[in-house]
Amino acid sequence: MMNKIEEFNVDEFLDKVTETKRIFRQSLEKYGKEPQCRQTMEECAELIQAINKFLRYPNDKHYANLIEEIADVEIMLYQLKVMFNIDDDQVFAFKVEKAKREQERLKKL
Rank of each mutant, 00 (worst) to 15 (best):
V10A: 10
K21H: 13
E19W: 01
I23F: 15
Q90R: 07
N85H: 13
V73D: 04
K30E: 15
M76T: 10
T40S: 14
D72Q: 09
R22A: 14
V82P: 07
C37Y: 13
K21T: 09
I23T: 12
L55C: 14
I75N: 10
S27K: 14
D88V: 08
K108A: 14
Y78A: 12
E68D: 14
T20N: 08
L77A: 11
T20I: 01
I5Q: 01
L106R: 13
E68N: 11
K16S: 07
L55S: 08
F13R: 05
K107C: 01
D88N: 08
A64L: 08
S27I: 13
V82C: 09
Q49G: 02
K61I: 07
E12P: 00
F84T: 03
L109S: 11
N59I: 01
A64N: 05
I23M: 13
L66S: 02
R101E: 14
N65E: 10
Q49F: 05
E102L: 15
I70G: 01
D11L: 08
I5P: 00
K33Y: 11
L55K: 13
N52T: 07
Q79P: 09
L109H: 12
D11M: 04
M76C: 15
F84M: 05
D72H: 05
S27D: 11
D15F: 07
E6Y: 00
E68I: 00
I67M: 06
L28T: 08
R105G: 00
A64Y: 04
L80H: 09
N9V: 05
E6L: 05
K95I: 07
N9D: 15
C44W: 09
N3E: 00
E7L: 09
E46K: 01
I51Y: 03
F84E: 04
T18H: 12
R22Y: 06
D72K: 03
T18Q: 12
E34Y: 09
D15H: 10
E19P: 00
E68K: 10
R101Q: 12
Q79D: 10
E12Q: 13
L14M: 15
F94R: 07
S27G: 12
T18M: 07
K30L: 15
T18Y: 11
I67T: 02
H62Y: 15
K81H: 13
L77F: 12
D89H: 14
Y78G: 04
I51L: 09
E29S: 06
C44S: 12
P58V: 06
L28I: 04
V73L: 05
N85L: 06
Q103F: 15
I23K: 15
K100A: 06
T40V: 03
N65W: 01
R38F: 07
E46F: 01
T20L: 09
L77N: 08
E6A: 10
V82F: 10
F92E: 14
D87R: 05
V91N: 04
Q49E: 10
L66K: 01
F92D: 09
